[in-house]
């Protein structure tokens, strides 16, 4: 970020990016989700357990927009899983660092999942650690690190968090 931006405006722009992010995943607009990352953006999911001990193995590691599109394509056409719908709730958003060309932000999330039988349950809780950059299209993710507390994934994880 060139000049130090006005905090209110910056928080508002982050909030709009997160709202769009949630809408892509919660409203079955998966194809739009990779566009919220820059071309060589990184999406990485790691358990809190591994993260705390410095173990590097990810649950998902997509280090280009192409890999994210492939994930979506595979979910649409190849993988088999129960029809499900997420609802993301993000809270406690805070800017944790400001750099010349990027800001870092951290937040908490809860994702509830509704399956075909009609029950809704908490599917996952955790933290987002983001590196965000300004682009002509608006604020975008350079990296989203998802550290999930819910170590035991219920059955499987198809759609990203």
């Amino acid at each position: 970020m060139s000049a130090e931006p006005d905090d209110l405006l910056l928080y508002f722009r982050i909030d709009r990016l997160f709202a769009e992010y949630c809408a892509c995943l919660d409203e079955d607009r998966l194809e739009d989700w990779p566009g919220l990352f820059i071309e060589d953006g990184v999406y990485r999911m790691v358990s809190r357990e591994n993260h705390a001990h410095g173990f590097p193995i990810p649950l998902l590691l997509l280090d280009s927009r192409g890999m994210m599109l492939d994930r979506v394509h595979s979910l649409r056409h190849a993988n088999i899983y129960q029809a499900h719908r997420y609802r993301h709730a993000i809270s406690g958003v805070r800017i944790t660092a400001r750099h010349e060309d990027a800001i870092e932000a951290a937040s908490s999330y809860i994702v509830v999942q509704t399956l075909g039988e009609g029950f809704t349950e908490v599917y996952q809780a955790g933290s987002y650690y983001d590196t965000l950059v300004d682009t002509p299209a608006g604020l975008r993710f350079r990296q989203r690190l998802v550290v999930y507390d819910t170590a035991r994934v219920k059955t499987l994880l198809a759609t990203p968090i």
């Binding site: 357990e49 173990f55 193995i57 170590a151 994934v153 219920k154 059955t155 499987l156």
Partner: peptide, 11 residues
Amino acid sequence: EYLGCTRQYAK
């Protein structure tokens, strides 16, 4: 070298 684990729970 151990790189970490993932866990899942099946009914």
